[in-house]
Simulated assay, not measured.
Amino acid sequence: MPRQPSKPPRGAVDEARPASANYHANALARGLALLELIAAQGKPLTLSEFSDGTALPKSTLVRLVAVLTELDYLVRVDDRPSYRLGHKVQGLATAYLATLDLSTAASPHLLPVAEQTGQTANLGMIDGDQVLHACVAEPDRPLRFTTATGARDHLYCTGLGKLLLAQLDSELVAACLPVQPWPAFTESTHTTLEPLHRELLAIAGRGYALDDNERSAGLRCVAVPVPVRGETGESFAAISVSGPTGEFAPAQQQAYVARLRQAAADLAADPEVAAALRLAQRSLRPPGRAE
């Protein structure tokens, strides 16, 4: 049986208007609420459905819809009448996306992590067969891990990379990796798929990844997923902290993981960060080995 469209939730739109709104500002807030209601429902709405969703009287809705239609923010689509979003909304959305910058949006969430842990915080995403450092925040201390926003690194030997690989199907994991054996950067680096595969299963089970002197001797890193989901349900971004091995004892690692999980939840709950992450993902190479 086909799924029926959900009925707009009834709620008083005036309850959410700004406290300082005068008559004209209140009309603007009501008009914007109509646009938000259509966007949330994902289908054309009638005046009755607008009334159900906003608790506004139909006489008020007729005036608001008339203005929005005249300005091309709404388009009438049938004789009931019902209305969908107009092309002016697309123009606003395009302009909004054009001004989004992931590093700028994510920095307010990463900076407190770096300050509170004393370690370098990093937001990463897969770009083909590499991990992209999409945003970096370094602590204010002389001894710290240093990298830069926009830098790239290997997937198989970094905390961010292994966390992101653990989100993928095993066939796709193999496609992201170099020809075996892989370059060994330290004595701890995995150089073949079998031990890495076992570790990825462990990462998926416990929910965080550890780079234990694998990319650089004397450096440890812990990473957790950012719960913004891709089309197939995987987390396609991760957040980490990196620093001197001696400052990542087991108890300290767990404290870092707890702080990272809080930051990851805050990143996912920030609508600008979530939109910027999805926009960035579309601009990156899908997971897979570079040709």
Score class of each variant (00 low, 15 high):
M1I: 09
M1H: 14
M1V: 12
R3C: 11
Q4I: 14
K7T: 15
R10Q: 11
A12P: 10
V13Q: 00
V13G: 02
S20F: 12
S20A: 12
A21H: 06
R30I: 00
A33C: 07
L34K: 09
L34P: 00
E36A: 15
I38L: 11
I38N: 06
A39W: 04
E49V: 02
F50Q: 04
A55D: 14
S59F: 06
A66L: 05
L68E: 03
L68H: 09
P81H: 05
S82A: 13
L85M: 07
H87L: 10
H87D: 14
V89C: 12
G91H: 01
G91E: 07
A93F: 14
Y96G: 03
A98F: 12
L100S: 09
L102R: 06
T104V: 13
P108S: 04
P108H: 05
H109C: 00
H109K: 07
L110I: 15
E115Y: 09
Q119Y: 04
Q119I: 10
A121H: 08
A121I: 02
D129V: 05
L132Q: 07
R144N: 06
T146F: 13
T147C: 11
A148Y: 13
T149M: 01
A151W: 07
A151T: 05
D153T: 15
H154T: 13
T158L: 02
K162E: 06
L165T: 11
D169A: 15
S170Y: 02
A175Q: 14
A175T: 10
C176G: 04
V179F: 12
Q180C: 08
P181C: 12
A184V: 05
T186N: 03
S188K: 13
T192C: 06
L193T: 08
L193W: 14
E194G: 05
E194P: 04
P195E: 03
L196Q: 03
R198G: 01
A202T: 11
I203M: 02
D211S: 11
S216M: 10
L219H: 02
C221E: 01
V224K: 03
V226L: 00
V226I: 02
V228A: 09
T232L: 15
T232P: 06
S235T: 02
S235M: 08
S235C: 15
A238S: 07
G243Y: 05
P244W: 05
P244V: 02
A249K: 13
Q252S: 15
Q253N: 00
Q253D: 01
Q254V: 04
Q254N: 07
Q254A: 08
A258Y: 04
R259T: 08
L260H: 01
L267T: 00
D270K: 00
E272P: 08
A274W: 14
A275K: 03
A275M: 02
A276C: 06
A276E: 02
R282Y: 03
R285C: 08
P286C: 03
P287W: 01
P287D: 01
R289I: 08
R289L: 13
R289M: 11
E291K: 14
